[in-house]
Design a protein around this nucleic acid. Structure first.
Lengths: 276, 276
DNA sequence: TTTGACCTTGACGTAACGTCAAGATCTAGC
DNA sequence: GCTAGATCTTGACGTTACGTCAAGGTCAAA
């Protein structure tokens, strides 16, 4: 069978423009070109086109699709097994999709929180648009003045981590900031209580607190915990060490002993749940 | 304070190119332009820039951001309350994000199934690349020959619904197709058993089956149930009616009585769980 | 005055086509 | 054979939010 460009487009559920595009980039070439310049396709081309469209529906880019199909064609010429190549490409694509979902989840959370903050602001609570000065001079989320450690923050977490967190913190409004601090302090109190109870950091109590702690960290834009793709496990482990080493942090968890408990619990949690 | 373009870029955690872009599209204009053509920004511009960057981190497009900021500026001129405009934009954006996540979830599922199918194919099970003819001539997923109802499928579910489902079905391979049919038949048997038990379609047994049924439908590319964004509730309700009205479907559920049970259960489920 | 650092506009590239535009060709009916 | 309408061609712009040169002016310190 031989199809005109419209016919094969209809057969595959796409458009002639797409076919011309695929011809242009060499992804699906016509089997024959008429003396009038018309493109004609045969069944082999149709099968190839079907595979392209299927992989496209999985979200692969056209160049990745080309790679898969090339492996398919190189099969007889001693290349790697085509299914292996396809699986390899799909695995890395799956990885990308998972990171993408993490990013979207984080955005959804941020948007929801922002909407809630706007609703609270509309309810009353005056003094919302003032006080734009020196907001970062207050103790932010880990118990010390970030403006004084701006350089350290930027060196540790990247150049715009500080700016990003700062924007977010300013956007919260007074009510939101109070709420955030309250949640932080509640978490701190719960950590202290758990540490004083003498429980094993790896026991469920500690692990549940560790989960809450990581969730709480994820809510801070500008850190590797926000969204996805960063080295979450490494970030958490680094913070855990910092809690112990730096007394400014340790204070929040009842001193060195409490911070040690937090560190051990986070370590165990990261090993179990965040292993890359 | 007055900043040069680099200074304001560093202060906000972005680049000078971005500032030039925002000037070009009129989103953030410099407060002053020097005789040498240099752009200079003041604190008001910095605040505006911060808001732009914050909203951008939430995933809004630059034009949507412009809309929000315009409402902010129109505040004194009798426009709607700026926070209301922002909430409106954020709500529709949230909607978009949720649909996007649904799409990604569906892609993740498809990719995972495809990888699993490739692994099975590599394990052995010959005859994988042949039999490309007339695959759709078999009873596909709802018990009748789709090639014979192609036009109806296209009219009901859109022009490339058929092509999309067809591609997916071909891609499954013999093992995958057998598996899929088995899952369909298992679902049918469970429906029949539930119907014969005389239970209330709205009772947990029926509702759990309805949930499984909808999940199963979501796995079929080309239907409104796949991914997200389509009228899932309307689609499910339409199918439910069809199961009763069309005996080709009804057979799968033990005849008219069983199909009626399925319909009622799906109706109740759609009302509870899929209400838009 | 030199030398970097910083500034400008202009323009191409990105992903995957959609959407005209202008013109050539095919097909069917008269 | 002629004409209308369907179909085909290449060419080029538009889409998003900038990154990345390129070529050339400006500024501040030495």
């Amino acid at each position: 069978m031989e199809y005109s460009i419209q016919q094969i487009a209809r057969a595959a559920g796409t458009t002639s423009r797409t076919l011309r595009h695929y011809d242009g980039i060499g992804l699906v070439r016509p089997s024959r070109i008429g003396g009038n310049g018309y493109r004609y396709y045969d069944d082999r081309a149709l099968v190839r086109l079907q595979r392209v469209l299927l992989l496209r529906e999985l979200g692969l880019g056209l160049d990745a699709i080309g790679e898969v199909l090339e492996a398919q064609d190189a099969q007889a010429r001693g290349g790697e097994h085509p299914a292996a190549a396809e699986a390899r490409v799909l695995h890395s694509h799956l990885d990308l999709l998972l990171r993408e979902r993490g990013r979207i989840d984080a955005q959804i959370g941020s948007v929801e929180r922002t909407i809630a903050a706007l609703a609270r602001a509309a309810d009353g609570s005056p003094g919302e648009t003032d006080g734009q000065e020196d907001l970062m001079s207050e103790n932010m989320f880990d118990g010390f003045d970030h403006t004084r450690y701006r350089e350290e923050v930027e060196r540790r977490w990247g150049a715009n981590a500080y700016a990003s967190s700062d924007r977010w913190w300013r956007s919260l409004g007074d009510a939101g900031r109070a709420e955030w601090r309250a949640s932080m302090e509640q978490l701190g109190r719960d950590w202290i209580a758990a540490a004083e109870s003498g429980a094993d950091p790896a026991a469920p109590v500690g692990q549940e607190l560790a989960r809450r702690h990581v969730e709480w960290l994820r809510g801070i834009p500008g850190t590797p915990a926000h969204g996805a793709g960063g080295d979450l496990a490494g970030y958490v482990l680094g913070l855990a060490e910092m809690y112990v080493a730096d007394e400014r942090f340790a204070e929040n968890y009842g001193g060195a002993a409490g911070a040690g408990f937090v560190r051990d619990a986070l370590r165990a949690y990261a090993e179990r749940e965040l292993a890359a």
